[in-house]
Design a protein around this nucleic acid. Structure first.
Lengths: 213, 213, 213, 213
DNA sequence: AATGAATGAGAGTTCATTCAT
DNA sequence: CATGAATGAACTCTCATTCAT
């Protein structure tokens, strides 16, 4: 037996649970697995969390908090925009990619979080689904707000900001998942650059005949 | 109970199971639920499928087969390309959107399949994961091949075809998921158009200062 | 494994459970104990009863049904009364004792039922308490009705029929419990006689000075 | 926490435990509940009582002590009896009722004790059962001795003193239980009167034809 | 071929009790 | 003395699967 301050113990359990959930998946992971990993008795977990699912939701809520915090941090920021005629595509893309990278870093703090968010927590209970939905909505909202700001500044053309934000988030997540499957740690930097570039300038070649305006 | 030709009965069970899995999720759905829906005894299911998971994998394999069939159908096709200088963006996008739509129709035959592929079958066993991975890989491969063909024809600029394909698929799926959450039947046509347009011409405004070449 | 018709199996489980509950008490008795006694697997019990407590309530409800049936059987009966002046105490008591005996036979079908009703089912959940209360109320109602009938016929003096009924039932039950403690099978016949005699003529001696009327 | 003299603290815990047991029942009541009620930490209880059940038995033993004390107090008393021919029924009953009342006051000090004795402590462990049995035996013994004394004095007719005592106690307890169910505080005075009257003169009417002696 | 009664491994959870602080 | 964090035995209950009918 080893004593620990309540707050600290709860965090320790969450950390171990995250690893266990990521490794085995929510259903395959026993409460026993988590407790073994945390080096505590099975009963101890229930002093900190109401039940197994509450452990998962606590993990997810952590992420949700981080994402929300980022959103507010960015809201506080006061950005001034150069006129579009002074800004090259390359610079704009570079700036965008940095923004996205920051976002990714916050959500996918580590590969375990990534795995849990995109895989192990998917398709569970409605409670879980709700938090997952909130995280998703916040992510999309952040991207969407960036798009709208950039539109207002004249950097982006007219488009459905919400739909585009969703697609961007989805595209990036899929790329992350694909990387995950390869079992190499995900390179968030490369991911951010590639996604930004695609979404910024699209795929079509300049050689195409101009549209008749 | 009513007798039925083996083949037919198996298909009927699959159809019911698909509905049940989509409605309740894989774990929440009992074998009993499925059998009730199919109007058969609980033992009967085991004469057609080795176990509960085999039912799910059969459903997924169905989808995988359809996607693979599409891929081969398209391979057989012999497309001739106009020179890019003769093709406007609008026409190119229109063509692309039609292609994507066809793909979506095949994968997301119905909302139940959609839900199972993107949610209920996620994060389960490795066997399931493997089929899901194959479906994904095939989808990406189809899109990727289209991209490479279009590049060869000079329609698309130089880009990492694989990564872009992944992002496209991910973006579209996310859009589909978002629609699913709204509980309205997904409008595949609109979805295809929006996605294609974004991925084709990107988000940046023409007013930006040209890159120094 | 041995197959059994549903109805029959349920009854068999109830019979075994009654024995087990009587022997060990509700809390000390495991579901395993019951199932072992019934020679079935632990899961089988749950095909017939929602949970452990439902087994107990089923047992109690059986008794309740029997008591209610007795009540109605007696209601149907049409008794004619001789004028009190023609009836000796001894005869009246004899008749009463037979009535009571019939009642006791129905409630305390066997020593196990007796023990469960008066001991093992006491102080449990409110649901259990409710059925126990209903049984009690019915018993009291039967006795009370007899009292009122006998009063109307002039056999019994003026008294609070309800309170007296309660006391009678309580007295008899306590006697039964005491007998139970001695671990000898309860002699319902003797019990009925003793109780009836006490309640009929009371304890006071005739030698007492008559009340000044 | 506040310090308290050992003896005093133990009594305080017992008082709180009594309330808790009465309100929730022995099994439903947690050690935590008791400790919260007593305003002490969960570990502290174990410095005064070996375990949860010891708390209950201590409560019961308190009652047992009180009943035994009453018994001895009455033994010490030296009663002189008037000849039966000088005593009216009404006076005898009045006297008896007062005796009973005193007894009831001692046993059912309060509604919580009542509830615990008649409900929450029933059907538990053999140790508990044993004390309960001792209390019961003492109660019966007191009543029985009174009966025998009164018989000796010629007040009561010939009867099985033990059996009658048991029935009396049982009748009174049942009346008390019934009152308890109504959730009104039990009126011990009325209870004593009603019971005594019934048991004294019985139920039969005087109009019955006299027994042929 | 079809059934559904029977199964039992294994899950999550509770809570009286211990003991380091 | 007092505490409450830690414990783990023991419980009830679920449900995919088997197999006698």
């Amino acid at each position: 037996m080893s004593y620990m301050r309540s707050e600290e113990r709860a965090r320790q359990i969450l950390a171990c649970a995250k690893r266990v959930f990521a490794e085995r998946g929510f259903h395959a992971a026993n409460v026993s697995h988590i407790c073994e990993a945390a080096g505590i008795g099975r009963g101890t977990l229930y002093q900190y969390f109401a039940n197994k699912q509450a452990v998962l939701t606590a993990i997810l809520r952590d992420t949700l908090d981080r994402v929300k915090a980022l959103m507010e941090r960015q809201s506080a920021l006061n950005v001034t925009f150069a006129p579009p005629e002074k800004l090259t595509r390359a610079v704009a893309i570079e700036y965008s990619a940095r923004q996205l990278r920051e976002l990714l870093e916050v959500v996918f703090e580590d590969n375990d979080t990534l795995r849990i968010l995109l895989r192990e927590a998917v398709g569970l209970d409605v409670d879980v689904e709700k938090i997952l939905g909130e995280i998703d909505a916040t992510l999309v909202a952040i991207v969407e707000r960036d798009i709208i700001r950039a539109q207002a500044a004249g950097y982006l053309r007219a488009l459905d900001a919400h739909a585009v934000a969703i697609m961007m988030v989805g595209g990036v997540e899929k790329l992350a998942l694909a990387a995950l499957r390869g079992d190499v740690p995900v390179d968030l930097d490369k991911l951010a650059r590639e996604a930004t570039r695609l979404h910024a300038i699209g795929t079509l070649s300049d050689r195409l005949k101009p549209d008749p305006t």
